[in-house]
């Protein structure tokens, strides 16, 4: 890529930083150039966030309809998957999957609830009382 072809599109990095790319100068030698962003990449990131928002909304409805426990909602809200939540809580994935059932969730001890609350950076009350 030539230096003058470096895209300068608006992106999430606006007012925070610019990214460094390796580009060719007029003599055909490598140099560096700063870019504010590239719309191709911005669209990919925007899409990923649309998907995340949709997943969170799906999770909220599942809790509201009594199909899933609040753990499911906060997991999506905090962009976690099972390996990540497992890392933060120390629970195995299959244990967490069990805790996603509203009936099992209702019988969880305060201690286990507080482990989840800490992982999600919320209080136990916020976790217990989330109704969707």
């Amino acid at each position: 890529m030539k230096k003058e072809e470096l895209p300068q599109d608006e992106s999430a990095l606006k007012a925070m930083t610019r990214e460094l790319l390796y580009v060719k100068d007029k003599e055909g030698k490598y140099t560096t150039g700063l870019s504010t962003g590239w719309e191709v990449k911005k669209a990919a990131l925007d899409n990923a966030w649309d998907d995340i928002r949709e997943r969170i909304e799906t999770a909220r409805l599942a809790v509201k309809n009594g199909e899933k426990s609040p753990i499911y909602y906060f997991m999506e809200l905090r962009l976690m998957d099972f390996p990540v939540l497992s890392g933060y809580t120390g629970f195995w994935t299959f244990t967490i999957k069990r805790h996603l059932k509203p009936s099992v969730f209702a019988s969880l001890s305060e201690k286990k609830l507080s482990v989840y609350a800490k992982a999600f950076d919320i209080t136990v009350d916020e976790l217990k009382n989330f109704k969707g």
Binding site: M1, L13, T17, E19, L20, L21, Y22, V23, W38, V40, K41, A43, A44, L45, N47, A48, D51
Partner: peptide, 17 residues
Amino acid sequence: LYLGQIVRMQEEIGTGG
């Protein structure tokens, strides 16, 4: 979305493009 992930990994800050 999967294609988007390929692009994001490829062009992430620090890759130099």
